[in-house]
Amino acid sequence: MNYEGVLKKMQTENGSPIQYYLVFENDFLNMNQLLGKKVSINFLRYQCLNCGLQKKIYRQGFCYDCFFEIPQAADWIINPELSKAHLGIEDRNLAYEESVQLKPHIVYLANSSSVKVGVTRKTQVPTRWIDQGAHEAIEIVEVPNRYLAGITEVALKDHVSDKTNWRTMLKNDVTDENLVEWRNKLKQYIPAEAAEYYLENNSETNLEFPVLKYPEKPKSLNLTKNPFYEGVLKGIKGQYLIFEDDTVFNIRSNEGFVVRITVN
């Protein structure tokens, strides 16, 4: 069976295990059903997720021009402390920025390679944790806008990482941490502006990924250097496909690539 389309991050559905779906314009794949099967990926061309033109992808699925113009790729996306919509100040498009920034946001702790702090919109829980490959997570604060979440994350980054080691996460070389204890320990570092939004009594969420075999030495598939790959799918974690020969393919970092996927 052949499936063709532009890559976008896999859609997920929390369950035991998590269900993964690759959605193309005219095709729909439940990736869990491909576990144990031989799958080939053939890179065909680029297609910017914003303008739709066949232009080389620069970052986040967007071509160079779109990346530096559209509000969906502005700096506050990666650095939420730069958000200014709560002040009525426009960065690239105030209406869009208000629609995203002025919504409830969560600052959380997640354990994917080690304990890390992160920010997400409330509507993206637990999707954000799944995308990061976290097997456990807990919310610390729930604030009314992205700016407050951003300054809280910045304050906590002095005491806990904000990065995931993708190799460690994929090898599942992780230890269980008591996230309730971590949350309580970090409470003292929450900025005064966000202190009233601290979540006191919530428990951690545990997530189960569909993996038959974890890679011992994960090596990343680069479609620009190797436009064709074939292997047996052994697992899915975060936004990565894990293959039998320890090759891993990050769907998220290949958004905007048009591919043909063949299942044997």
Score class of each variant (00 low, 15 high):
Leu34Cys: 04
Ala85Cys: 03
Leu82Cys: 14
His86Lys: 12
Asn93Glu: 15
Ile236Glu: 03
Gly118Asn: 02
Asp65Lys: 07
Ser99Asp: 15
Lys116Cys: 08
Cys48Arg: 10
Glu97Phe: 05
Glu142Lys: 11
Gly5Phe: 08
Glu244Trp: 02
Lys213Val: 00
Leu212Phe: 00
Gly5His: 07
Asn145Arg: 08
Leu223Lys: 12
Ala137Leu: 06
Thr127Met: 05
Glu177Arg: 04
Gly231Asp: 05
Glu244Asn: 14
Leu186Met: 04
Val154Gln: 09
Ser83Met: 04
Tyr3Arg: 12
Glu255Gly: 15
Phe243Trp: 01
Ile261Trp: 01
Gly235Cys: 03
Tyr96Leu: 09
Leu102Tyr: 07
Leu207Lys: 10
Leu221Glu: 04
Gly235Phe: 01
Glu193Gln: 10
Thr247Val: 15
Trp129Pro: 02
Asn206Trp: 03
Leu29Thr: 13
Tyr96Arg: 09
Gly61Asp: 09
Ala195Met: 12
Ala95Ser: 15
His105Leu: 07
Arg121Asp: 09
Tyr147Asp: 05
Val154Asn: 11
Ser40Phe: 08
Ser203Pro: 04
Tyr240Phe: 10
Phe209Leu: 06
Cys48Pro: 12
Glu200Leu: 08
Asp131His: 12
Lys163Asp: 08
Asn14Arg: 13
Thr168Ser: 06
Met31Gln: 11
Lys225Phe: 02
Trp129Ser: 02
Pro126Asp: 04
Glu90Ser: 04
Pro17Ser: 05
Pro215Asn: 10
Trp129His: 02
Val248Thr: 01
Leu207Cys: 11
Lys217Gln: 06
Thr123Cys: 14
Ser83Ile: 00
Tyr108Ala: 03
Val117Trp: 01
Glu142Arg: 14
Cys48Val: 14
Gln124Thr: 14
His135Ala: 11
Ser83Lys: 00
Lys56Met: 14
Gln124Tyr: 11
Arg252Asn: 15
Gly5Asn: 07
Val115Trp: 01
Lys171His: 06
Met31His: 10
Leu156Ile: 05
Asn264Trp: 03
